[in-house]
């Protein structure tokens, strides 16, 4: 899967959880939860959806690498191209 496709998929999943926030309007380098106003259960819902979609384990120990939109995208691209 190309990084551009992964980015589209990530945007789709974020839109599902935070439909009122446009991905184009957020700062991709800022705290993801702040930017999308998502709490821990929303974040778990996001991780669950991404894990299923990409067949990734998304362990809790890796949450530190999912702090911003850019981080999460990098994490997904890296995990899928291992």
């Amino acid at each position: 899967m190309k990084p551009a496709e992964i980015q589209i998929a990530l945007k789709e999943e974020l839109h599902r959880i935070a439909p009122d926030i446009e991905v184009t309007e957020i700062d991709p380098a800022a705290d993801l939860r702040e930017e999308f106003d998502i709490d821990s259960i929303d974040f778990l819902t996001l991780v669950t959806a991404l894990g299923k979609r990409f067949d990734l384990a998304m362990p809790e120990a890796d949450y530190a690498h999912m702090g911003t939109f850019n981080d999460l995208l990098t994490y997904l691209v890296g995990s899928l191209h291992k």
């Binding site: 821990s40 259960i41 778990l44 991780v47 669950t48 894990g51 299923k52 809790e60 120990a61």
Partner: peptide, 17 residues
Amino acid sequence: VAETNKNRAPEERLLLG
């Protein structure tokens, strides 16, 4: 919570709540 979630898939994880 951290210990319980270590080997769990996201859909089975616990939250403090």
